[in-house]
Design a protein around this nucleic acid. Sequence first.
DNA 1: CACCACTATATTGTCGACAGTTTTGTAGTG
DNA 2: CACTACAAAACTGTCGACAATATAGTGGTG
Lengths: 219, 219
Amino acid sequence: MSGTRSLADRLFLTLRSEIVEGHIAAGSKVSEPELARRFDASRSSLREALMRLESLGLLERRVNVGARVVDLTERGLLDLYDVREALEGMACRLAAQNRSEEDLVELRQMLNRHEQQEELQKGTAYFQPEGDFDFHFRIVQASNNDLLIDTLCNKLYYRVRMYRYQLGMASPRAHRAFREHSHIIEAIEAGDGELAEILMRRHIRASRSNIEKKLSKTN
Amino acid sequence: MSGTRSLADRLFLTLRSEIVEGHIAAGSKVSEPELARRFDASRSSLREALMRLESLGLLERRVNVGARVVDLTERGLLDLYDVREALEGMACRLAAQNRSEEDLVELRQMLNRHEQQEELQKGTAYFQPEGDFDFHFRIVQASNNDLLIDTLCNKLYYRVRMYRYQLGMASPRAHRAFREHSHIIEAIEAGDGELAEILMRRHIRASRSNIEKKLSKTN
DNA sequence: CACCACTATATTGTCGACAGTTTTGTAGTG
DNA sequence: CACTACAAAACTGTCGACAATATAGTGGTG
């Protein structure tokens, strides 16, 4: 069969959620025997899961010492935004250049859904992280560059989620973000890759500045 | 002790070279028992090495089937260039913004070394892939963004190397590349992040176009 | 000869055990 | 009390074995 998942695979998925959502605390040590007992699995399977988590950048392993959950630092968060700015900017450009019919339809539908949600919960911080995620996720898919898709959707976004969950950086930029999303999709529809890239980069950089401001207040 | 390397670690490094250099053919199946015998190691250690190779994007593993070396496709190569354009462009921008004294000195020294080499082997395809690699590598280091550095230097560059070794895409753009490198470093020295990014992106895109042209002839 | 069913072989996934290393805890000394 | 030296415990790295799955090979049937 094809869709089979190995035990190590399931452990990986479970642990990924727990780390992203902070049930396993950032910076904490991860003990193989302890988790093995908890999930009633062998250390082998668990180790495989841990290694995959390491390759996601969610864990750090050191020889003969073991694994720790990465800790969340302001620097790490800002660095992440810079990488996203570069990659998602490119994704936007490529999406605009390809411009497959299905992608355009899907993007437009998504935007409409978000608009309705905005009408519904007007004023309140409508823009759930999930809605924002949806947007960025789909754009990347539309880039049609497998490496880019994999890097963002299967790797970096988990780190993004981890920061959002735990530092609670849900952007309060609500419907301003919505308008920005709207313009980006228009540029893609128009096949204007250059503009699409610029707008996406500006969009992400705005989020970054926003967070930078918050952080400087906290300290 | 700190610098200790595990067996799995050494296997990983060895296999990485063999795959990058094509001694283990692209697209070929990788058998755990076979390699375990060959290196006189247990399958556990070997499996760990394979998993790390997978996270580099050099191997693809499927449940209950095993691992295959990725195959090299034109599309994959071009995709890789688009991702590099985005990331290294950003690296350049950041390097120009940071502009630490040591980085500037190192970059300048490197450029001088390359210039001498160019004088030496004038006309001939001087620009060894290694020289080019040096350049891109150091720029990324100067970005001071750990995530960016890790993504490029510890992950993507091995794929780049693999394509270069096996498709032999050593750019024949020789001293033209050198001039471009030179201008990029000048922009970084001047602290002009925007220009530095533009130049780097153009530099990479030129390589990409060059390869695209070659490929269209071959087919 | 092509195609399908079935058996045999080989490979992967998972497990538990042992050895070497790190960490923890304890006692002793200045 | 602070600090070092040492002993005990815990953990990681590595190994070989078994069960489940996929692949290769064989024979049979149209």
